[in-house]
Amino acid sequence: MHAIIRQGNGKYYISSVFGYYSDVKSEDDYQRYLERIHSTYYVVFNEEKTKLIKWFNIQPDTEYLIKQVLIIDSDESGWIINEQDDTGGVEFLPRELADKIISEGVVPDDIMQQCIKFEESYTYEEYREIKTKKDIEDFDWATGNFHDACIEEQKISDGGELYLRFTGIWGCQVEIWFWDDLEYCTDSRNPEYWDPY
């Protein structure tokens, strides 16, 4: 698994994801829901790739839900998933060990080598062509299934490609190009007449 780690003010970097956890303690369903939103974190590299850090999915200490982690490669090969809460991580780095490494700030050499190997297995592409079912799944993960998405810009290029830019997606904007045999209708998404979301 790999992600865009959003640092704020337009800054970001790409990292492998080694775990995904939350600290939910409440028995009340609604409280559990809130705790899950605000306590969920990822185990990722720091920007320099010299240590592991805990990076919250939603920016802490704000009244808004600001997404900080955009999963761009959803591959969970070699992960152990807890079926009860859908959390988990890579098999060589269980949660207790990951939390200990993060709190101490020192990554044992054998763990660091495995993390680096994991990191080097992925090549980031800023613009990806969607060709396979896996590409579609990754796109859904990155965009949050287009939750709250709205077409902000639409145009046809001189070459006949349809360009769409979406806003409202948690944590990003999305640009999409369609080409070849195009058939489409976006009239129902025109904000002058309809709810565009």
Results as ranks from 00 to 15, higher is better:
119 E>S: 04
73 D>C: 10
110 D>K: 09
131 K>A: 13
176 I>H: 09
106 V>N: 07
26 S>H: 06
77 S>T: 13
29 D>G: 08
47 E>F: 05
103 S>T: 11
37 I>M: 05
45 F>Q: 06
23 D>P: 04
156 I>Y: 11
192 E>W: 06
6 R>I: 11
51 K>Y: 03
131 K>W: 08
155 K>C: 14
196 P>I: 09
177 W>L: 14
1 M>V: 05
4 I>T: 00
61 D>R: 09
149 A>K: 02
69 V>C: 07
168 G>W: 02
56 F>D: 14
175 E>P: 01
80 I>C: 01
149 A>Y: 04
5 I>G: 09
192 E>Q: 08
40 T>W: 04
119 E>H: 08
116 I>E: 12
39 S>R: 05
34 L>M: 12
130 I>A: 03
77 S>Q: 07
5 I>S: 06
158 D>Q: 13
132 T>D: 02
114 Q>D: 06
90 V>T: 02
108 P>S: 03
132 T>L: 03
187 D>Y: 09
10 G>L: 07
71 I>L: 02
114 Q>A: 00
11 K>L: 14
97 L>D: 04
94 P>S: 00
58 I>N: 09
140 D>I: 14
73 D>Q: 05
70 L>I: 13
115 C>H: 03
121 S>A: 11
95 R>S: 01
126 E>H: 14
148 D>F: 04
66 I>C: 08
10 G>C: 10
128 R>F: 07
120 E>K: 12
